[in-house]
Design a protein around this nucleic acid. Sequence first.
DNA 1: TCCAGATAGTTTCAATTGCAACTAAATTGA
DNA 2: TCAATTTAGTTGCAATTGAAACTATCTGGA
Lengths: 145, 145
Amino acid sequence: MPDLILDHFIPYRLSVASNAVSARISQSYRRKFGLKIPEWRLIAILAEQDSMTPLDIGKAGELDKITVSRAAAALIERGLVQQRKHPGDGRSHFLSLTSDGRALYREIAPIALATEANLLSCFSNEERTLLDDLLRRIERSADAA
Amino acid sequence: MPDLILDHFIPYRLSVASNAVSARISQSYRRKFGLKIPEWRLIAILAEQDSMTPLDIGKAGELDKITVSRAAAALIERGLVQQRKHPGDGRSHFLSLTSDGRALYREIAPIALATEANLLSCFSNEERTLLDDLLRRIERSADAA
DNA sequence: TCCAGATAGTTTCAATTGCAACTAAATTGA
DNA sequence: TCAATTTAGTTGCAATTGAAACTATCTGGA
């Protein structure tokens, strides 16, 4: 009856692949470091940018403001992130990693990269780049509409 | 400091792309037909296979048994899916679409395909096939570990 | 200047999810 | 044969998530 074959339906394939990868990755962040995915993402962003407002973190990491707010609160509580006043805007503030936060990042980053390498072990470099590119394009396409 | 660039980290790209696509797609199922993603997926599976047990549906669609159970209950409630006894196993049962369910499927399927076509409108056929293939491989890789 | 939006971030509350416990039926093996 | 274990599916409860309301601050125009 159907001309739609779920098994070849790209949104389905994408969701299944993403779930499988997320499950695999988040397990290791969670078990070893007690971090949820948004928390890990926030750390990774701050490691690249040093100091940012929650709003900019959200933009940089596709996190909504509620998620950023909660992740930041949890990380501040654990002493991994610190807050300081935004000089020009009293509603906002800057977030940055503490030295504990940076130390944690230096522990996790290699593991994250190794996990990724493992996931992609059967991919050539071209394929890897291609996947990155295709994912970006489909994402842009989805956002557009 | 980091050798990990979030923006090129494949698990991140995958998650962002999948979320963008899911958001786009689920909105249309939800608004037009009042279906959640697992409900839609269950319908799509039954449209292909005609009659299956919840267990087999779960295997076919990467849904866990709780999700299948709840989706099926909701669809039965709406008269889109029906249950009948499993002759050989009293613990289980068969699920299939009712004629209303099939009618709904015939409405949604073309929309789903059109949405997919739209998402992939800037992809060549080769790229499309390639994406499917790459997603399958990374998924297998993630499941393996 | 000061009031009417607009904006940053947080909190509250309701919906969704997922684990673990549960029921019921089937299978295994002494 | 029948008790112990396994399996199919459901349900109850706790954690996660997200939308909308809220607080505090900022901006722009009379």
